[in-house]
Amino acid sequence: MKTKVQWRRQIVFALIVAALAWGMYSGFRPQPVVVEFGEAVRAPLRVTVEQEGRTRVVDRYVVTAPVDGYARRIALDVGDTVEAGVPLVALEATRSAVLDARRHAEAEARVAAAQANLAAVEQRVLAAEAGAELSGKELARIRTLRAAGHVTADAADRAVAADDRAGAELRSARFTVATARHELEAARTALGYAAAGGAGEPVLVRAPVAGQVLKIPRKSEGAVESGQPLVEIGDPRALEVEVDVLSADAVRIRPGTRVLFERWGGEGALEGVVRVIEPAGFTKVSALGVEEQRVWVIVDFKSPPETWQRLGDGYRVEASFVLWEGANVLQVPASALFRDGDAWAAFVVEEGRAVRRRIDTGQRTGLIAEALGGLKEGDRVVVHPDDRLRDGVKVSGR
């Protein structure tokens, strides 16, 4: 018969063997893959294109200077209401330049030079008159001698030419005197009226329409050129939104597309509708330095005006273009899908094991995908499947 000590030894040995066997079994048996689960649910789904936009006044009028002149200080301020035909800016004639001591002395010297030039040309007129008188007398004497036959016809012709030449020189000298007098008058005017204000009534630039002042490029007085912007006028109650979207997204947007404006600063979301997609794109460099082709999309507000009247010209809004939406859509996380040949597939959890199943997909957003077939409501799927998953592998949730 076995003693108690022998029985105890056998029991301890059996327990050790059992512990070793359990440890080996636990260490070598397949462990469930720890994954994150998602669920197929029915809920509203909306496919959108989201971009930043900004408001702008529908009809903006830039009032420019009609002529070169000197603009008086503009008394209006941004935000002031103006009526059609009200004077906005008064334009005076261009003012003369201010002369310093050196330029003033130069102007006086030009006056003195003009006076001397006038005296010189007047003396040339006297000389020309004397020459013309002498040639006239000579021509009369030659004609008398020619009639008597004492001079040749050639001498008579030379006398006629000399008289014509003397007459032309006299007329030229008189024209020179007139020019010198005008130059003297101009020099005296420049000296006498330098730095004087413009004469005559100012030109009043009036408001073309009723509205509010949106922008004043320069409020202070000063010289302006023809076509230079002076005041911008518009009606801030008539707003639209301009949004630049990627050209790849613009082809998915159509006139009449519904638009939601969120995070605009007020309560709730505003609604709008696409009026036009501009036919020409432009290149824009993104914040990452990548060149992108973008297109302007113009949107009209559809919400009641009292809900968005707090917006003004150039305000930032977040625009969501609704491309498609459904009220009761079976959907799963888009991160649960992966390519399986030419189709999409997902790992569906059945009795603790991952089962590969092909999924027919419909509309997609960045995070959600519509399931048209292969899933039913309540099915659990593996989100972000990795290469450890195989068909039939046990899985457990985190």
Rank of each mutant, 00 (worst) to 15 (best):
R263P: 00
R263A: 13
A250P: 08
E262A: 15
R263T: 02
E292K: 13
G266V: 03
R254K: 15
E278L: 13
G266Y: 08
P236V: 12
G266L: 02
E232R: 07
A250F: 07
G281E: 07
V290S: 11
L270A: 07
V231W: 07
V290A: 14
R237M: 06
Q293M: 07
D249S: 13
R252W: 01
G256Q: 11
V276L: 11
E232A: 11
E291Y: 02
P255H: 08
Q293D: 09
T283R: 12
P229V: 02
A238I: 06
G256E: 09
P279R: 12
E242R: 15
D235M: 05
G265E: 09
W264N: 04
D235K: 04
W264D: 06
T283D: 13
A269V: 13
F261Q: 04
R263N: 14
R254T: 11
A250Y: 08
R258F: 01
G289D: 07
V273N: 07
A250I: 02
P236M: 05
R275E: 15
L246Y: 13
A287P: 00
E292T: 03
D249W: 03
V251T: 15
A250W: 07
R258A: 10
F261G: 03
E271S: 12
E232M: 09
V276E: 15
I253P: 10
V241S: 07
